[in-house]
């Protein structure tokens, strides 16, 4: 579905310096697969997400979705950011409808879909509330609805739970898996949290930094549906240990 073929991205800083954010990344993501990108800060995982979203163009290689090269943002991708960044002047419903409105595709079926999505994430009855009246977790749920409102095949998530407290984070992790089970999508999920990545993903793509490249791709063998009790299982332990080793080079994995 999503194919990255020897993709590289070099940024030019203000001082005219060339900085390689990503170099020679090749990756194939299957339809309705859940893939997590983990790696230290500055390993280019957010850049990778923006390349797939068509928000930045690669300086080398090729990104394609369904065989077509990505040259600009496409209708079949939706993005969730780390901060919910809802519009403070719009109601929750209007926030969810905002992408449709910006694409000039707002119609009755879109409205119905937005209400369905809000119900799916447990925000029925909050349609006419304003973002400041909602908790951070509820705002991020609305942010997920906003990314899904145009019914994209691909959901790109850039540390979507990074700004939430630990409990809300676990709650939304379970919630996301439920949403994905009910409405299968291809999900590319960027995170700093190794347990989160292993619990969510079919495959965990571990990236190394400067320049960002794929260190290894780990298959997670845990059965679905998953929950936090599975953290005790050996498949989970093996996958997280291997990920840690790759990121820290085996040095700090057993520091404590």
């Amino acid at each position: 579905m999503i194919v990255l073929d020897h993709v590289a991205k070099t940024f030019v800083t203000r001082g005219g310096e060339q900085v390689a954010a990503i170099s020679d990344v090749s990756l194939e993501v299957r339809r309705n697969e859940f893939v997590c990108l983990v790696g230290a800060s500055g390993c280019g995982k957010s850049t990778l997400l923006r390349l797939v979203a068509g928000l930045v163009a690669p300086t080398g290689g090729r990104v394609s979705i369904g065989g077509a090269t990505v040259t600009e943002p496409r209708d079949d991708t939706g993005i969730v950011f780390q901060a919910p960044t809802l519009l403070p002047w719009a109601s929750i419903l209007d926030n969810v409808l905002f992408p449709l409105d910006m694409m000039r595709k707002l119609d009755a079926s879109g409205r119905a879909r937005a209400r369905d999505l809000l119900a799916l994430v447990g925000l029925s009855g909050f349609e006419s509330k304003y973002p400041r009246e909602l908790s951070g977790g509820m705002q991020q749920r609305a942010g997920i609805c906003r990314a899904l409102v145009h019914d994209p095949d691909i959901l790109l998530m850039d540390e979507p739970f990074g700004a939430l407290d630990a409990l809300t984070r676990e709650e939304l992790t379970i919630e996301l898996m439920r949403i994905w089970q009910e409405r299968p999508k291809t999900i590319l999920f960027v995170t700093h949290s190794i347990p989160e990545a292993v619990l969510l993903a079919d495959r965990v793509v571990v990236m190394s930094a400067r320049p960002g490249r794929v260190a290894e791709i780990i298959d997670v063998e845990l059965p679905r549906p998953r929950d936090f009790d599975m953290e005790a299982r050996s498949e989970f332990q093996d996958a997280t240990r291997r990920t840690r080793e790759l990121i820290f080079g085996g040095r700090s994995a057993r520091a404590n």
């Binding site: 600009e72 993005i79 950011f81 780390q82 901060a83 960044t85 519009l87 905002f98 910006m102 694409m103």
Partner: peptide
């Protein structure tokens, strides 16, 4: 304006004018 909102506008392929009118000015 938070850069995410500008990216959201771009992801919806909104014109610069629409970005100004619907995101930047209200913000």
């Amino acid at each position: 304006v938070p850069p995410e909102l500008i990216e959201l506008g771009r992801a919806c392929r909104a014109s610069k004018w629409r970005e100004l009118w619907r995101i930047r000015l209200p913000y």
